[in-house]
Lab assay of single mutants.
Amino acid sequence: MSIQHFRVALIPFFAAFCLPVFAHPETLVKVKDAEDQLGARVGYIELDLNSGKILESFRPEERFPMMSTFKVLLCGAVLSRVDAGQEQLGRRIHYSQNDLVEYSPVTEKHLTDGMTVRELCSAAITMSDNTAANLLLTTIGGPKELTAFLHNMGDHVTRLDRWEPELNEAIPNDERDTTMPAAMATTLRKLLTGELLTLASRQQLIDWMEADKVAGPLLRSALPAGWFIADKSGAGERGSRGIIAALGPDGKPSRIVVIYTTGSQATMDERNRQIAEIGASLIKHW
Rank of each mutant, 00 (worst) to 15 (best):
T27K: 07
T27F: 03
V29K: 15
K30Q: 11
V31N: 00
E35V: 04
E35M: 04
E35D: 04
R41G: 05
V42I: 10
V42M: 12
V42T: 06
G43I: 00
Y44S: 02
I45V: 15
E46Q: 13
E46D: 07
E46C: 05
L47S: 06
L47N: 03
D48L: 04
N50D: 13
S51E: 11
L55R: 09
F58C: 07
P60W: 07
P65V: 04
P65Y: 02
M67N: 14
S68K: 01
V72W: 06
L73A: 13
L73T: 08
L74K: 01
L74V: 10
L74H: 00
G76L: 06
A77F: 11
L79R: 00
L79K: 03
S80K: 14
S80I: 09
S80T: 14
R81I: 07
V82E: 06
A84L: 12
G85E: 11
E87S: 06
Q88W: 15
L89S: 06
L89F: 08
R91P: 03
I93V: 13
I93D: 04
I93K: 03
Y95T: 02
S96T: 13
Q97R: 14
D99W: 06
L100F: 08
L100W: 08
Y103I: 04
V106C: 09
V106P: 03
K109W: 10
L111H: 12
D113C: 09
G114T: 04
T116P: 06
V117T: 07
V117S: 03
E119S: 09
E119A: 09
C121M: 08
I125M: 10
T126Q: 09
M127G: 06
M127L: 14
S128H: 00
D129Q: 00
N130S: 05
N130I: 00
A132V: 04
A133S: 10
A133H: 04
L135R: 04
L135I: 12
L135K: 06
L136A: 05
L137A: 06
L137W: 02
T138D: 15
G141P: 03
G142T: 05
G142A: 05
P143L: 06
K144T: 13
K144Q: 13
E145I: 10
L146C: 05
A148G: 12
F149C: 06
F149N: 06
H151Q: 15
M153G: 08
M153P: 01
D155S: 00
H156I: 10
V157S: 12
T158Q: 02
R159V: 07
R159N: 08
L160V: 12
L160P: 04
D161G: 01
D161H: 06
R162K: 06
P165C: 07
E166L: 12
L167K: 00
L167D: 00
L167G: 02
L167C: 14
A170V: 10
N173S: 12
D174Y: 03
D174H: 03
D174I: 03
E175G: 09
E175R: 11
E175H: 14
D177C: 00
D177W: 01
T178Y: 01
T179H: 03
T179C: 02
M180L: 09
P181L: 03
A183H: 12
A183N: 12
M184D: 00
A185D: 02
A185H: 01
A185I: 00
T186G: 15
T186E: 15
T186F: 15
L188D: 02
T193D: 12
T193P: 02
E195Y: 09
E195G: 13
L196K: 15
L196F: 13
L197N: 05
A200Q: 13
S201F: 05
S201M: 11
S201T: 08
R202H: 07
R202S: 15
Q203F: 08
Q203C: 09
Q204M: 13
L205R: 01
L205A: 03
I206K: 10
W208T: 02
W208H: 03
E210F: 11
D212C: 03
D212T: 07
K213I: 10
K213N: 10
V214Q: 07
A215P: 05
G216W: 08
G216L: 08
S221P: 08
A222W: 07
P224V: 04
P224N: 05
A225T: 11
A225K: 15
A225M: 15
G226V: 04
F228G: 05
F228E: 01
I229L: 07
D231E: 06
K232S: 00
G234W: 00
A235M: 06
A235K: 01
G236W: 00
G236H: 03
G239Q: 01
G242C: 06
I243Y: 06
I244K: 01
I244N: 00
A245Y: 03
A246P: 02
G248M: 02
G248Y: 04
D250N: 15
D250K: 14
P253E: 08
I256Q: 00
V258C: 14
V258N: 04
I259L: 12
Y260A: 03
Y260G: 03
T262E: 09
S264N: 08
S264D: 05
Q265C: 13
Q265L: 14
Q265I: 14
A266I: 09
T267V: 11
D269F: 11
E270T: 13
R271T: 10
Q274S: 12
A276G: 09
A276R: 13
A276D: 05
E277A: 11
I278A: 03
G279Y: 05
L282F: 09
I283K: 05
H285M: 11
H285Y: 11
H285Q: 11
W286S: 02
